[in-house]
Design a protein around this nucleic acid. Sequence first.
DNA 1: ATGACGGTGTGGCACCGA
Length: 262
Amino acid sequence: MIEIMKIATWNVNSLTVRAPQVLDWLADNPVDVLGLQELKLTEDKFPFAVFEAAGYSACALGQKTYNGVALLSRLPIADVQKNIPGFEDEQARVIAGTVLSAAGPVRVVNGYFVNGQAPDSDKFAYKMRWLTALQAWLKLELTQYPRLVLVGDFNITADDRDSYDPEGLRETIHHTTAERDHFKALISLGLTDAFRQFEQPEKSFSWWDYRDFGFRRNRGLRIDYTLVSDALKPQVQACVIDKLPRKNERPSDHTPVTVTLS
DNA sequence: ATGACGGTGTGGCACCGA
């Protein structure tokens, strides 16, 4: 018998607005674990009960107005970690937990990576510091949890295929060499971009600007990723971007990405 | 070059996102 485990990521851009869409999506796509980003609410406003009723327990690191991350899971979650240990951060960007599946424990790290605004900004400097801290922590996590999945909104295009206009946007935010070097450094820890393990259509994106008919014109970026550790790589069965929720009324600007493990 | 759209908080807009 083959145990299947599905892990997904979705930047919902306000859980207050999007909770009904998340519930609808889970009803159609009953993944085992869903990492959410950009909750834009504090934990006291997190709708634990509605997700419980749908069969999902939740753990969350909230923040008013900005950021905020959560893990929804149908399986028990243990050893929850909020933000990067030893990295002082007022912003709620990371939540990790160990999912106890029938096939053994899987460490799921869910991140809302720093946007960075512009390469010459203070926010970009923070992005670099944050990425450095994430990398150092994940190196340790991987020794403790060889079976690890890193999901989230990375706010980085891994390479030119992940942008609708790689030439025109060269060295702008999400496209800089410095950001891509950090992405490669994560890969060098022993992680693999599950999406690129499979043949994919050209111009596959996970985010489209609300403005200027971005989705209709497919002017988007692939910035939402599911990275699997070397130990899990042989078990990757599929990785798909679901564009359907982007067609909803009042959609998030991001769509869910799901990785399937055997 | 700018702003376009959307969410939030607070206030009559500004800030942020990507």
